[in-house]
Every structure is written in C-alpha cells, then in structure tokens.
Design a protein around this nucleic acid. Structure first.
Lengths: 147, 147
DNA sequence: CTATGTGCAAATCCTTTGCAATCCA
DNA sequence: TGGATTGCAAAGGATTTGCACATAG
C-alpha cells in the first residue's frame, strides 16, 4: 500500500503535480476497494467518511488526473456512470475481464487473459499498436442461471 | 434492406408494437449507416433531414425499444454518449470487435471473433451462461502509429 | 509569494419524463 | 373511439467549470 502510494507520488511529480492529502485520501479509498468498481460518487462518500470537507468536484478532478497518469482507468458497465479501477503494476494480473450478470448485475472478474493470440493477429493484420483492451462478457451468473 | 425492415416489423408485432413511419425512418438511418456507430443525436439529425418534424425524444424512445427487442445494441467508446449498432442476423458476422485509436479516435472493426476458446473456458470455470460479449482494443491505428 | 489545488454553486451535456395533441387499428 | 405514439419543454442525473479562497513548496 505504501509502495503504491509512493509510486503514484513519483509518477505525478514527473509532471510537477503533487500528491496532496486530498489526493492521497482518494487513492487510499481506491486501494482499499480494488475489487469493487466504485463510481465517482461512491468514492466521494467513502472519502467523506474520513475527511468530511471534501468536495465532489475534487474527486472528479482527481480521478481525471489519475486517469491521465494511467494510475486508474474507467469502465462503463452500462448503468450510466463511470466506474474506476486501479491499474495493476506490470505482471500482476495486468489484464482481466468482467462477467456481467444481466439479471442481478453482479460483476465477476476473470483473471486469466487468454487474448494473446487475438492480439497478435490484430497487431499483424491491422497494423494496430495495442496498448490496452477491455472485454465485457454479458450473460447469467451461476446463481441466476440456475433459476 | 426491405427484408431487415419486415423482420423488425414482425419482431415488434409479437409484442403488439407497431413499426410506425417514424420508427421506420430511424431504422433506415441505422441500416444505411451500419458501420458508423452513430450516437442518438447523430441519428436524430439524419432522420431530421428527411422528416424535419421528428423529435429527439422519439429517437431515444425508439432506440430503447429497438434495444429491448435486440435489434440494436449500444456501446460506449468513452466519449460520454452511447453509440448504436445494428445486431446482425445469426451467422452473419454476429460478433466483432472494435479497435479504438487513442490519437485520432477512429474506430475500426475486427470481423473475426476468435473468442470461442475463452468463452468455453468461462462457461466451464465460472458456470456463467454467456449471451454476448464486447471487446474493445485501445491503441494506435496504422496512420497514427507511424508518426 | 506564486502557482497549484480545492469547495461550492452554477453550468453543461446527455438522456428521460410529463403532458397534451395526434395517429392508427 | 381508445390506446399507442409523438413533439415539445421541463426535469433528471452525471460530470465539468468558474471563481474566490486555501495551501504547498
């Protein structure tokens, strides 16, 4: 956790941005809820619990800043708001996918990647330089599928 | 084209909805711009060219109706608005993926699917019943990558 | 001290909704 | 005729922005 925070601090400093205490609070919430896919407002409320005078605008501004620095990225699961995810350090489950249940809305992560073949093919066939990808799989989770 | 339209008409009729002339206009625009990933507002302007008294709300309502009937589906390319795509008839390029250029914003389609293996694995490992999937690949297109 | 960061409220953008008028079976 | 459909304007929800104040280096 401290490692992640100091890494972020360093990243920001390369372009003269500071890791202020506000930003650190937000980062902590992101770290503590890695698996939760929080929305801006959810992050706001969690930060507010420890620092009640934070503003929603700051949360949005910080999330944008973190996105610019590839510290987080946003995903849209189709519920009309962006959700945010920490980007893992290289080699630590870098890529993963999401299973989205159309009935109960639960989101499960698939940790294997399994797209290397496809990526290789795309790179060759389309001369496209891949930096990232995002796979959403829609359907019914175990619990809902059994009904 | 006529085939697609009458198919849609039939689909709607199964639940007592009509393919009104408004809805048909919107469907025509969707058919004529299959490859364009139009937003609601872009569709609205295109429909307005032939039928100037159409309302934006009708476009939204029709797009929702078409989504409910699995005639179209919406995708979010991260620009803050939904974009719509006709769903191809079974067996005709059903699944495809999108290459999104981070520099120029161009969106290219990859027509091969290549995810069967992964799907099989997900189905088995997670007991998840897949109905659909969506893969977005981010990076730089040929033109931008060469710069 | 100066530029950067922040809270608040207002503004903006996309989308949805209420309602009265219109249309079609 | 009666329920579905529509246009318009207003409402809604998420996000962004303007501005004056606070803060860090």
């Amino acid at each position: 956790m401290r490692k992640v925070i100091s890494d972020v601090e360093e990243k920001l400093r390369t372009k003269d941005y500071k890791l202020t205490s506000r930003r650190e609070n937000i980062l902590q919430v992101l770290i503590e809820n890695q698996d939760k896919h929080l929305s801006a407002e959810e992050i706001y409320y969690l930060v507010k619990q420890r620092t009640p005078d934070v503003g929603l605008a700051t949360v949005y501004r910080t999330l944008e800043l973190f996105s610019d620095f590839a510290i987080i990225h946003s995903i849209d699961f189709g519920d009309g708001r962006k959700r945010y995810e920490l980007i893992q350090a290289e080699g630590e489950g870098h890529h993963h996918h999401h299973l989205i249940c159309l009935r109960c809305g639960k989101i499960q992560e698939v940790t294997e990647d399994l797209l290397e073949d496809l990526e290789r093919r795309v790179t060759q066939t389309y001369n496209f330089t891949i930096t990232n990808h995002q796979l959403k799989i829609f359907g019914y989770c175990k619990a809902c599928g059994e009904k």
